[in-house]
Write a protein that binds this DNA or RNA. Sequence first.
RNA 1: GGCGCGAUGGCGGAGUGGCUACGCAGCGGCCUGCAAAGCCGUGUACGCCGGUUCGAGUCCGGCUCGCGCCUCCA
Length: 448
Amino acid sequence: MTLFIHNTLSRKKEAFEPLNPDHVGIYVCGPTVYDYAHIGNARPVVVFDVLTRLLRRFYPKVTYVRNITDIDDKINAASRETGEDIRSITDRTAKVYHDDMAALGALPPDVEPRATDHVAQMITMTEQLIETGNAYEAEGHVLFNVPSMPEYGRLSGHSRDELIAGARIDVAPYKKDPADFVLWKPSDADTPGWDSPWGRGRPGWHIECSAMSQEYLGTEFDIHGGGQDLIFPHHENELAQSRCANHSDRMAKYWMHNGYLMAEGEKMSKSLGNFYTVHDLLDEFPGEAIRLALLQTHYRQPMDFTKDGIADARRTLDKWHRIAGDVTAAGEDMPQDLIDALSDDLNTPKAIAELHRLAGKGTDNARRALKAGANFMGLMGETADDWFKWSPATASDVDEAAIDALITERNDARANKDFTRADEIRDQLTAQGIVLEDAAGGTTWKRG
RNA sequence: GGCGCGAUGGCGGAGUGGCUACGCAGCGGCCUGCAAAGCCGUGUACGCCGGUUCGAGUCCGGCUCGCGCCUCCA
């Protein structure tokens, strides 16, 4: 079995051949922790979660690194606005991020480095870039000199000339070349800063991922992932920094990028009110339904994320849980067709189709395979019973004993053909968001 | 303006030179006190215009529309 992945560097699907089959390394750009993650931020988390699960199936050791960006001018701005301490903002936001991503069924990364813990490494790399002649100091800034790297632009497909021609902002006067970008910048007294050979300051955005990926995965590693919008400038600049500092031909062997996401047919924007945060969606829907909705579209496709889509996904999971019941799946139950689909550049929609196929078969083997495959994709992680009793955060608390009592009363009424009373009870519970289902084995309830 | 991605049935969404994707919704039927679930059957597609081919959603060219990026902003 060969794993194929689309490599942004070649813009082709390639067979994955790890640098070292005994230890695969993957780095994914994580969040800047100044605000709750929106659904667009969740897509790469879920996509690369599936990828790491797959890599772990194929290789004995996988190190998954996903950073937390806690040095950023947006964080600084938020702190100035609200008066909340920076560390408090970043800790609080990171905590919510962890909870939200866990609710989506994403396993935590093996290493989750924070930028603030790696400033020394960033300074070292910046010094190296000055030594190699790829960077220079100017007015307290250190800038990467783009013309010093002939292959700059290979990842994004932009040439330096095009970038300059298309530039929409004024070029800072201290730049040698209009395309040069910041490695280090000075901080004033009110802004977080660290001592450096160039005075008190803070790192530019791109250098953190260069420094931290190297710290945990080495100068060359297997896969670097993130959203498509990171290809330029973030990943292009990371690549330039790391390669030049290390005199290396490459940084990551494979670069993977997930497609962008819209909400309800429109570009997500706060002004349009269609800016879904994961945190808010989790009040309305089970996390696994959101996860399945995200996986229903292939990761490189643009995606229109809708609440209807989550509701659909939820009904699908309802059905699968009804079919699988409480079977337990073992390793040998894993459906090979599902693994094959995922191995073809993470074809999750095809893998999901395979789960549908198993759901329709009706045999015990198929039920176990359904559960095993769903579990592998981070779905159906709880019992059917727990799944059906999930309730939205807005729902009022319901007394389960009272429900059971009403069910008993209704069944007595039904036995006596008192269907008026039976329907009253159904309506009463429906009004509370409780749905009753009469089956051969008795009456069960779930939250609507 | 430059670079890139996308366009499949009512909706979601794979696929790929010739053979039903699949799911949801719809319609007809069975079952059911009601409801749900389940079962059987069933219709609808490949943005537009050319070209290559015995044959094209599938390859080539052009066009239209949508979206992303074009530097200190993840």
